[in-house]
Nucleic acid binder design. Structure first.
Lengths: 198, 198
DNA sequence: GCGGTTCTGGACCGAATGGGCCATAACGAG
DNA sequence: CTCGTTATGGCCCATTCGGTCCAGAACCGC
């Protein structure tokens, strides 16, 4: 019927996500987005709407990708506890610290925008609730597999695990030395899930 | 000698801090700052320098106040463990959720700016290191008072406690229901410091 | 009361912002 | 090949940004 798009929508979304991730929402100008995506103003605007809409779209994409990866991680884990351990240790896993320093797009965005942009806070709640559900499932499995005390409540433990991971992400974002970060991760993991620490 | 200042520097700093706290650094315009402080451009600029400098000043003020309060809290605590418990439960203590939703200025700022403004990340590290030291002292005392297992390492435990608190602050910033937040706080506290949970 | 100095707040500036617009190009259907 | 449709990207605009500057006001010591 008509002229087809020259760009791959998903690719643009990833480039835009990176731009927002690196500079934050407010500090990323339309120009930055155009340069990152390689598109012209009309194209970007026509395909995704204004900056705000585009940002939310990229953020939701990011979240969905993460949730999917988490679910897959649980399915492919040898034991339920393994997935939980990886989840907690993840933010401290990078020996160079570069990944940790970048933080999590959702956490960064929520911290920056929760007060002024309810959609971001809502997205964060949605994401964290979903993660809690996945962790709960993982911990139920871990209990059946003998890696979690029979009297421990999986849902309650899941909340504690999520909190620990959020804390590690926040701490990693400060650029704390990788060793310190790893020590903190190990410390909190040992106390929350002794069976996962060895 | 000359005309004295009409405004109280500390008062202005608090007003400015609130403005940044509510909107984030980038989204707060000079106009916002003038309105919040009630000063004219020349006065604010002359007294504090540009936006960036003013922000760092307000942030450091905020940090120092927090650290001082934490030290006082330790000194006035009946037991070392009480101070640690209050520190962890703090972010979830507000039944309306308004305080939690506001988050922590330092955490918000670090999440927004760590990548682009090294001073902010450095300030966060400084603050978190200082908090860890205070917590370590509190936990050493708690161990002497029988509220921490003799074989537990206070410094290591302090790191875990800090991570938990940062996680709760991050979770609270999403606007999660106060009940859920309180449950998460209680869950993580029970697991990190059984003696503090009752 | 006077002089000198500092404070004050608004006028002003250039630059950059987010967003709208449109002439043109590129394509598929017929 | 032609036509209609849609993507494209650069041009344009009003607004707002952070920051400078200055004329006048306010105050102190003398």
């Amino acid at each position: 019927m008509a002229r087809p798009r020259k760009f791959d929508e998903e690719r643009v979304l990833l480039a835009v996500r990176d731009a927002f991730w690196d500079k934050g929402y407010a500090a990323t100008s339309l120009d930055d987005l155009l340069q990152a995506s390689g598109l012209g103003k009309g194209s970007l605007y026509g395909a995704f709407g204004d900056k705000h809409t585009l940002f939310l779209r990229a953020l939701r994409d990011y979240d969905n990708t993460n949730l999917l990866a988490l679910r897959e991680s649980l399915e492919s884990a040898a034991r339920g506890i393994d997935m939980v351990r990886d989840f907690v240790l993840g933010p401290a896993a990078d020996p160079t610290g570069a990944v940790s320093r970048r933080g999590c797009l959702l956490a960064n965005s929520n911290a920056e925008l929760a007060a002024s942009t309810p959609e971001v806070a809502a997205e964060a709640r949605r994401s964290y609730d979903a993660i809690t559900a996945i962790l709960t499932e993982a911990l139920e499995r871990a209990r059946r597999e003998g890696d979690l005390a029979p009297d421990a409540d999986p849902a309650d433990t899941a909340r504690a695990v999520l909190v620990a991971q959020l804390g590690l992400v926040a701490l990693g974002r400060t650029g704390e030395a990788p060793d310190t970060l790893a020590a903190a991760a190990r410390s909190v993991l040992t106390r929350l899930l002794p069976a996962a620490a060895r």
